[in-house]
Design a protein around this nucleic acid. Structure first.
Length: 315
RNA sequence: CUACGGACUUA
């Protein structure tokens, strides 16, 4: 069962759902009964792909086979809904989960709060946090960060900072992700000085910045700031021993495009490939949108064609 | 037991 679960999880996480389902069938034939982990791994795969019908079907199949769902199974469904914009349906599921006798855990609350926060409904998220506390649950660093990030994305820096402080008053230590959410808010508004003081502070407090943290700093230089400073950060992160990832390269393309440096942006396409990272739809969209903003429709179209030629489908 | 939640890129 352990081996099977590992394999089902592997396939499901990669979106190979046919393979995952075949494995479950094999388990049955081999006389091994899939457990709640097997089922949850599989239905979570469907949920992430936005195939809610199939996810729910597996959920029912699980219960019919006599395996009781737990909060993780419900959470997988809820996350699938929130990540595809169905926040209200996720909320309904959350209620249904309780009616079915499963108590939401911290992850359930966090998933729901994050869903609303990502849709720009931060106030609802705040309200849910209050309810969560009233129900006796204790928010952890992920819960706080979901809300904090919501405020940061809205550009409400005071609110995001206040949550950052509040979580600490309530005994929760910010981790690298919480710091990154905070820093990202400041960076995006062009408050680069504040962003880098926070970077220093997090280091002093023993939290090591990761690639995501640097990405947040770099991308701030798209709307406000300069290519030179972005390049400087890009170099610095590598001196710290961190390797640029897809987000980093795309951020660099964005910064260059925003500043009209399209030739350089195209060079970045080549370099990233040489470094083993393929430009994705986001990379191309960024470049094409950059051309469009400057009225360079011809080049936008040429790159649109080239993207298709490279085997990527426009979204 | 590689089951479920939070940050950073385009639109």
């Amino acid at each position: 069962i352990v081996t099977y679960n590992a394999m089902v999880t592997g396939y499901a996480q990669r979106g190979f759902m046919d393979e995952a389902l075949t494995l479950i069938k094999n388990m049955h034939q081999g006389g091994i009964k899939p457990d709640v982990i097997t089922w949850t791994a599989a239905l979570s795969g469907f949920a992430r792909l936005g195939k809610q019908k199939e996810a729910l079907r597996l959920f029912q199949e699980m219960e019919q086979s006599g395996v009781k769902s737990n909060s993780a199974s419900w959470n997988a469904i809820i996350v699938g809904l929130t990540q595809h914009g169905h926040t209200m349906l996720a909320y309904d599921m959350f209620q249904e989960m309780q009616m079915a006798g499963t108590k939401p855990n911290v992850a359930s609350w966090t998933a729901l709060i994050s869903g609303f926060a990502q849709q720009g409904h931060v106030a609802t998220g705040q309200e849910l946090l209050k309810q969560m506390k009233m129900s006796g649950m204790v928010p952890d660093v992920a819960t706080w960060t979901a809300l904090l990030a919501g405020h940061a994305r809205e550009g409400c820096l005071e609110e995001s900072l206040e949550l950052f402080l509040q979580m600490q008053r309530e005994g929760v230590r910010p981790d690298v992700i919480a710091w990154t959410a905070l820093i990202g808010g400041y960076a995006k508004k062009g408050y680069h000085k504040d962003a880098s003081s926070f970077l220093m502070e997090m280091k002093q407090r023993g939290v090591a910045p990761n690639v995501g943290t640097w990405n947040a700093l770099i991308v701030g230089h798209a709307s406000h700031g300069s290519v030179a400073e972005a390049m400087q950060l890009f170099t610095e992160m590598q001196q710290e021993g961190l390797k640029p990832n897809q987000y980093t390269w795309n951020a660099m393309i964005l910064v260059l495009s925003h500043h009209g440096q399209f030739e350089e942006a195209c060079i970045v396409f080549n370099i990233m490939q040489r470094e083993g990272i393929k430009p994705d739809v986001v990379s191309w969209n960024t470049l094409i949108a950059g051309y469009c903003h400057r009225g360079r429709d011809k080049e936008a179209f040429e790159h649109f064609e080239q993207m298709k030629y490279e085997g990527l489908s426009p979204d």
